[in-house]
Write a protein that binds this DNA or RNA. Structure first.
Length: 178
DNA sequence: TGAACGATTTCCT
DNA sequence: GGAAATCGTTCAA
């Protein structure tokens, strides 16, 4: 949370964003995780080395980005739910549209991927090696809010969602407490 | 080989 | 507030 995400650094489409909302997915013990059924072809990324990008396609129109967080052999990932643009807003608007509110440019799983240009092609990317996408620690620790995850049907009661308390870019599927 | 579902977003009523 | 859009993955036969 609060980390700086950089895409295509150095190019004309370079974008730097700061994470304001994430969700944790535990793996084989978590019925809501894609890794719950074991290392299927799709989920095997999450069983691999940490620092890799796990991108999946959902509802026929959305790409969603995760970062693998646990050691090889143990599934676990963090779903990137929302971020705020720090640099390269122009490049984001080119993909999202000029009319999108600034706080919503990267607010939401699908929107975040769309705005950053992350697609299935980036699945399995090693964030620690590739220059396409890099992650750096943020300058400070934002105030954290926690609550139940959103949009899932199983294990919805677990408080595995974390957001930047009070930040306008935090997505609000329903009424969003906070 | 076929069918159902999903870690959502957007537009229309 | 509700429904549609749309395709890869997974489960069943």
């Amino acid at each position: 949370m609060g980390c700086l995400l950089s895409v295509d650094e150095g190019s004309a489409d370079a974008v730097t964003a700061r994470l304001v909302e994430v969700e944790a997915y535990l793996g084989t013990d978590d019925p809501a995780s894609h890794a719950f059924r074991g290392p299927t072809p799709r989920a095997q990324i999450m069983f691999g080395d940490p620092g890799h990008l796990y991108v999946y396609f959902s509802y026929g129109m959305h790409c969603c980005a995760n970062l693998v967080t646990r050691p090889a052999g143990t599934a676990g990932a963090v779903l990137l739910r929302a971020a705020v643009v720090e640099q390269g807003e122009e490049a984001v608007r080119r993909r999202r549209g000029a009319a999108v509110g600034e706080s919503r440019l990267l607010s939401g799983l699908g929107n975040l991927c769309k705005g950053l240009g992350i697609g299935l092609d980036d699945n399995g990317l090693d964030v620690t090696v590739s220059g396409r996408l890099t992650v750096a620690e943020g300058p400070d620790r934002p105030p954290l809010g926690t609550g139940p995850r959103v949009g899932i049907s199983r294990a919805a009661g677990l408080a595995l969602r974390f957001w930047w308390s009070g930040h306008p870019a935090v997505s609000r599927t329903k009424k969003g407490p906070d």
